[in-house]
Design a protein around this nucleic acid. Structure first.
Length: 424
RNA sequence: CGGGGCGUAGCACAGCGGUAGUGCGCUCGGUUCGGGACCGAGAGGCCGCAGGUUCGAUCCCUGUCGCCCCGACCA
């Protein structure tokens, strides 16, 4: 991608009302644009990050047998009345309105009411179980208070998966499998998550939240510094300094951002929609369900919140908008500039041919300082500079975003070194 | 929904009861050229919206809408 043609630009100053780090940096770097409170447009840079996060989630959900579907966002009232959620929580959470002819409908804020009757159509026998389906879709919640940039929006991206089982043992086994898949998702996105016990509602003792420790979090968790056993403050009877009940380590208190949540729904929804199956013994039995959520847009916000410095974002390689930020610095003399230009454009092509994603700052009228500032703000993992200075040594300057040291790398070795760096 | 803050040029801000300014950005010309340079010339405003007070309101008052923060809330 040529920087000169990139839609969306960096800004020298941050929006005055962007107080959280993720809102400030993502807006200033040209990743997102705020339309209203809790509602954002993803610009090309931000969308690339969001896509990478979603694709990591897809890979891991597919790996545990999830099958991707896409349910509608506009939903009819009727199934919500069956579970009582049309009126409670009702419009407090769900955007509700009338269609033509006065039909009540609303925007999806979760999809148990849709996926359960859907699954019912395909479940007859124990032979049809288990299975799980998921979707990645925008959810709508009428938040009383949207806040903190991408961390708590009124429209936000969500991956919601639902699993269906013949008995509790099968549900529990799958639930644990998804928990491990979730940890892989977050690690791959550059986030370390604690598996935190949280309120399970009426149908199981606990649900599990995936919480990333950071001072900008809005949840309080108690966790063991040694084995990472953790509980949300909402249910916890521990306090900082207590002995961990699992390993004898010491419990600590920390602020955290919730980036995922998994529930054993048991028969909460299958009962409401009368979803059962015929077992091997010929008896009709209720189906058990689990549900599993991750907010990809919130993950993007959380990564920004955690991985940055005073100059800008520092994306993990796995989710960076581009892998390499190539900067071309023109020279005083046109003959030298011509050589720089020729080398930089050729390097862009060589990198792309090698399958490396390049953001090429090809602007000619822009000074070096501004280009470096933009590179730091956008935060791609590796910056390469081609200039008269580097070409004097047949080299390009090599500087990882997370490092303060720059080095010269011979032109002939750059592509191979990039491959190596990105694979590490 | 309670409390607080803020709405003035694309962005960040200043200002004042007498009809609007600075910096950045943008356009043109010139000098610069490895960490957001400099000089000169320009373009760009329903001072969030509505009502009130006043001879006169961007400024004072009331209401309203919007954004941000704290709290409540967060299957």
């Amino acid at each position: 991608m040529r920087y000169s043609r990139l839609f969306g630009r960096t800004a020298k100053t941050a929006p005055h009302d962007a107080d959280s780090a993720n809102a400030r940096l993502l807006a200033q770097g040209g990743f997102v644009d705020q339309l209203m409170a809790g509602v954002y447009t993803f610009l090309p840079l931000g969308l690339r990050v969001l896509h990478k996060v979603k694709n990591i989630i897809r890979e891991e959900m597919n790996a545990v047998g999830g099958q991707e579907i896409l349910m509608p966002a506009i939903l009819p009232k009727e199934p919500w009345e069956k579970t009582g959620r049309w009126s409670d929580p009702g419009p407090e959470v769900m955007f509700q309105f009338k269609g033509r002819g006065g039909a009540d409908m609303g925007l999806g804020w979760t999809h148990e009411e849709i996926v359960t009757p859907l699954a019912k159509q395909f479940i007859r026998s124990y032979k049809d179980l288990p299975f799980s389906v998921y979707q990645i879709q925008d959810k709508f919640r009428n938040e009383p208070r949207a806040k903190s940039g991408l961390l708590r929006g009124r429209e936000f991206s969500m991956k919601d998966m639902y699993s269906f089982h013949k008995d509790e043992a099968d549900l529990v086994q799958y639930y644990d499998k998804v928990r491990d898949a979730y940890l892989r998702v977050f690690e791959r996105c550059g986030l370390h998550a604690l598996v935190v016990e949280a309120s399970g509602g009426a149908f199981s003792k606990y649900s599990h939240e995936f919480q990333t420790l950071t001072d900008s979090g809005e949840d309080i968790v108690y966790y063991c510094g040694k084995c990472e056993y953790a509980q949300n403050r909402e249910i916890s009877e521990y306090k900082a300094g207590d002995t961990c009940p699992k390993c004898g380590g010491t419990m600590k208190e920390g602020k955290a951002i919730e980036i995922g949540n998994i529930f054993k729904l048991m028969t909460r929804f299958s009962a409401a929609f009368d979803v059962g199956y015929t077992d091997a013994d010929g008896a009709k039995k209720p189906v058990l369900m689990g549900c599993y959520g991750i907010g990809p847009s919130r993950v993007v916000g959380t990564v920004a919140e955690i991985h940055h410095d005073e100059k800008g974002l520092i994306w993990p390689k796995s989710v960076a908008p581009f892998q390499v930020h190539l900067v071309m610095l023109t020279a005083k003399e046109e003959t030298a500039t011509a050589k720089v230009r020729e080398t930089a454009y050729r390097l862009e092509q060589e990198l792309e041919s090698a399958g490396i994603e390049v953001l090429f700052d090809d602007r000619e009228e822009v000074r070096a300082g501004e280009k470096f500032a933009d590179a730091d703000l956008i935060g791609n993992p590796l910056r390469l500079v081609v200039s008269e200075k580097t070409l004097a040594q047949s080299s390009v300057e090599w500087k990882p975003r997370m490092s303060s040291e720059a080095a010269l790398v011979p032109l002939a070795e750059v592509v191979a070194k990039c491959r190596e760096f990105l694979a590490a």
